[in-house]
Computed example of a mutant assay.
Amino acid sequence: MSLPHQILEYPNVVNKERISKSGKGILLRADDKTYLESHAYKQSVGVEFGGGAIVIGVWLGASAELSSQYIVPAIFTLGGVFWVVYGIFVNKKYKIFELNRLEGTVAYPDRFFNPPLEGKFKDLKAVISVSGNIDGYADSEYLKFVNTFKPRKLDLLYTFYGSDPQKDWSFYVWYMDKNRPLPLGTAFDPYRQQDFERRKAEGFPRPLYPSDIPTPEATPEQQKERRLIGGW
């Protein structure tokens, strides 16, 4: 079942220390307009995985005595070559996750060499996937995006390897509700006043998405203004 577009709980706090100054980290931008992550690190992992597969394939091939035994080494070697080539030559700019707060849009990586999938955040379907361990008990939970922007008969869900899928989803919903204050965290502190003034000029329209937690303004004075003008 898809997750509701709703702030379910207090999300993870996004502090300014998480933002990469070199442009080579994961979190590249977090302000009142755009939240941008680079997911190119997955391709780096693919290169390492592919390199390991090549080594295993060559070793198995050198150990094989019969021609029929070369099938498995060939699979390892060719698969490893593919992941190395893919990891090196894929356009890293395609491997981004971007939330546009004001436009209400989202973009996230598509398969292989394809450009990112893009669409309206309100149309995005997200689920929580639970993996099991060898004993059959629930092990890890992952937030996954269902491809709703470019439907295909056979498609894989895009997986986010976050710390807590409900907290991550709650953050995304909170951030994308442009009628609410910016989420918690020092990364957004420099932009809170201008975001407040924008919403004030618009008459403090009511939230786009419901919330199970309070989302007050940064100061009591601002909260009073919102109640007076917006009525909530």
Rank of each mutant, 00 (worst) to 15 (best):
Y158N: 02
G203T: 00
G46T: 03
N179V: 00
S211C: 04
I71M: 06
G104K: 03
Y94Q: 06
K92W: 10
E37N: 09
D123Y: 01
I26C: 11
L99Q: 06
K153F: 15
G230S: 01
R227H: 06
P181R: 04
P109D: 06
S44Q: 12
G132I: 15
A138I: 13
R111Q: 12
S129C: 14
E221T: 01
P151W: 00
Y209V: 09
R227G: 03
Y161V: 15
E221M: 02
F204M: 02
N114A: 12
F188Q: 05
Y191P: 02
P183G: 05
D164S: 15
K224G: 04
S68D: 14
E48L: 14
S2N: 13
L66D: 13
R192P: 07
Y108A: 02
G46D: 10
A187M: 09
I19N: 10
D212P: 03
P181K: 00
Y41F: 15
I56T: 11
E9F: 01
K21C: 14
P190M: 04
S140A: 12
W232Q: 01
M1Y: 13
P4V: 07
F97R: 09
N179W: 08
G79N: 02
E217N: 03
T186W: 00
W83T: 13
P210D: 07
E197H: 01
N147E: 08
Y137G: 14
F121V: 00
P207N: 03
N147Y: 01
Y191D: 08
I54W: 09
E217Y: 03
W174Q: 07
G185Y: 03
E103T: 13
P190H: 04
V127Y: 09
W174R: 02
Y70R: 02
D168Q: 10
D177I: 14
E217G: 02
T34S: 08
D110E: 09
I213T: 01
P216H: 02
T77P: 02
K24H: 11
E217M: 07
G119K: 00
G104W: 00
P220H: 01
D212C: 08
R180W: 08
L184R: 12
L60V: 00
G80K: 05
L208F: 07
K93Q: 15
G104M: 04
S44A: 11
Q222G: 05
I19P: 11
F89S: 09
R101M: 07
E118C: 10
D139L: 14
V81S: 00
K16C: 11
I96K: 10
K178N: 12
A30W: 05
V90G: 03
P73Q: 07
D195Q: 04
L3M: 08
V130A: 15
